[in-house]
């Protein structure tokens, strides 16, 4: 590259580089470093290195909160994927006009205020609210059952909030899927569900993987949902980070919890990156072998 080319590259890259370094990389490093300090009495952090914060984080009751966050996120992800697969399948089977309408209707809630949607659920699940009345009228519950302020409520509202992000990537993959493969399988005697599992599912695998990430990551980082519909015994990491930052003013503990959250997000990301790389390598190898076979066959 010419000298002026390199200058131009630096010049054009500079604004985003500087902005994101100052307001993204540096703050992240600050959070990590604060976790190795002790809290000071004035609500900041003391100088001097310590491992005490980390020891406290590994011990209870943080451990319980971390596990609860991970399993609620995992169940949310599983439910979202199970609901998204048939949805994406049936949207992809519609004609173009209907496809656009239904896909638009699924994404429309995403364009509306998140806090308003969680509030709508809070009212819906309220003891005086619509769902309780319906359940009592159907004889499925009485006034003593509480729909709000527990892990179940967090789960329902999380599925509600993240479902569009699971449907869309799977639908995008399903749109490119060749449905005549399913017909062929059925002509050969496969049952519908077998064809769905063995042909459709592998066909939309990439979409499913990105759907998992699109749900799992925000679920781990959830704060508003557990805060508004969760209860005292269903706190998640997000609530704890807030609590340690503001009411308790224990910044080192908040930082350590933030680091734990960061790792819980990075781990599945790294796993997916590794899987894709391995799959690409395997496909490349298979292709190379097939080519070699063809070539040697041609030679023979």
């Amino acid at each position: 590259m010419t000298r002026s080319g390199r200058w131009a590259e630096w010049g054009v890259s500079l604004p985003s580089f500087v902005w994101l370094t100052v307001f993204f990389v540096v703050p992240t490093l600050i959070v990590l470093s604060i976790a190795f300090h002790a809290p000071s009495s004035d609500g900041g952090f003391a100088s001097g290195f310590t491992m005490e914060t980390w020891k406290a984080v590994v011990r209870t009751p943080y451990k319980e909160i971390v596990w609860r966050t991970i399993w609620i996120s995992a169940v949310t992800t599983a439910v979202c994927i199970l609901l998204s697969l048939p949805c994406a399948y049936s949207i992809a089977r519609m004609n173009t006009r209907w496809r656009a309408i239904v896909a638009g209707l699924i994404m429309l809630p995403f364009w509306t205020s998140f806090i308003v949607r969680v509030f709508a659920w809070r009212t819906l699940l309220n003891p005086e609210g619509f769902l309780q009345h319906v359940l009592i009228a159907l004889g499925l519950a009485d006034a003593s059952v509480s729909l709000n302020y527990n892990s179940g409520a967090i789960l329902v509202v999380s599925v509600y909030s993240f479902l569009p992000f699971a449907i869309m990537p799977i639908y995008t993959a399903a749109e490119k899927f060749d449905f005549s493969l399913m017909e062929a399988a059925r002509d050969l005697g496969a049952r519908s569900f077998f064809a769905f599992r063995k042909i459709f599912l592998p066909g939309v695998k990439r979409g499913v993987v990105s759907a998992i990430l699109m749900v799992f990551i925000p679920a781990i980082g959830s704060y508003v949902i557990p805060d508004l519909v969760g209860g005292r015994d269903s706190e998640l990491i997000g609530n704890k980070i807030y609590q340690r930052t503001f009411p308790d003013r224990n910044l080192p503990h908040a930082s350590a919890l933030a680091a734990v959250m960061g790792f819980s997000v990075l781990l599945p990301l790294a796993w997916v990156a590794w899987m894709i790389k391995r799959q690409d390598a395997r496909e490349a190898k298979r292709l190379a072998e097939a080519t070699a076979r063809k070539l040697s066959g041609g030679a023979a």
Binding site: S16, F17, L20, T21, F23, F24, V25, V26, P27, T28, I30, V31, I34, L213, I217, P218, I220, G221, Y223, G238, I241, Y242, T245, L251, A254, S255, A258, M261, G262, V265, L269
Partner: peptide, 21 residues
């Protein structure tokens, strides 16, 4: 990497790190 990472970072982490800075 610098552009992509904020997209997958939970919001609360970005909030707390900016606050601490």
């Amino acid at each position: 990497g610098l552009i992509y990472t904020p997209l997958v970072m939970p919001e609360i982490l970005m909030g707390i790190s900016l606050l601490m800075m």
